[in-house]
Design a protein around this nucleic acid. Structure first.
Length: 204
DNA sequence: GGCCCGATACTCT
DNA sequence: GAGTATCGGGCCC
């Protein structure tokens, strides 16, 4: 299965976000694959976007967002959670796609162990990162390096009728127009309850 | 299913 | 010192 190349990520963030839906995120741990179909993402685009961390410009934290597309931006929030983003656009332009949910398809036992008793394995950004075992050690990792143990496999495009767009989640005090920008993309019916759709996606 | 709330520590001012 | 791109438990339907 071909890995998505840097040219995929080095495009407008909204395009990358939309097209990441239905592709397969893979992490290899000691030869074992953890994987899931990307089910929900959000776009954060440039210093103008007041919901984007890069609104404050270059800092130690945001520096990775200015790196070439295809790098991982992993940051810590709410005192206990790691969130996984993929850098997009041209080198020097700070933008990224936040991974908000996957449909776990491989390595589920390992994910379950990491997630504890919860049935909600990967239906949130911090849950997904925890299930995959992604934390600060992966900040700055390059998905497009052939030796990378984290990468995305190209499956096939999902039909437009499967995609829902909504405003981004959890933006709190972010002012308009950024608060209402419909920059959240998700697969309809990919929620925890829709096992039928989930298994259809897993079979892609 | 939903709402409310507390936990918790890192980043930047 | 304030704010935070969240989660899970408790509670109530």
């Amino acid at each position: 299965m071909p890995r998505l190349p840097r040219s995929f990520f080095a495009r407008p963030t909204l395009t990358v976000a939309r097209e990441l839906l239905g592709q397969r995120l893979v992490k290899v741990e000691r030869g074992k694959r953890l994987a899931g179909i990307i089910a929900e993402v959000e776009a954060y685009i440039g210093e103008e976007d007041l919901a984007c961390h890069a609104k404050v410009g270059r800092t130690q934290r945001t520096e990775v967002m200015y790196a070439p597309a295809g790098h991982l931006y992993v940051y810590f929030t709410y005192g206990m959670h790691w969130l996984l983003n993929i850098v997009t656009e041209r080198n020097g332009f700070p933008a990224a796609v936040l991974l908000r949910g996957i449909i776990a398809t491989e390595g589920i036992e390992i994910m379950r162990r990491r997630r504890g008793r919860s049935d909600h394995l990967t239906d949130g950004p911090a849950k997904s990162a925890q299930a995959l075992g992604i934390d600060q050690r992966w900040n700055g990792a390059d998905l497009c390096n052939p030796d990378s143990d984290v990468f995305i496999e190209r499956i096939k495009p999902v039909p437009a009728s499967w995609v829902a767009t909504t405003p981004r989640v959890g933006l709190g005090n972010t002012p308009e127009p950024w608060l209402s920008r419909p920059w959240n993309f998700s697969l309809k019916g990919a929620g925890a309850g829709d096992l039928l759709r989930a298994s259809a996606l897993a079979a892609l």
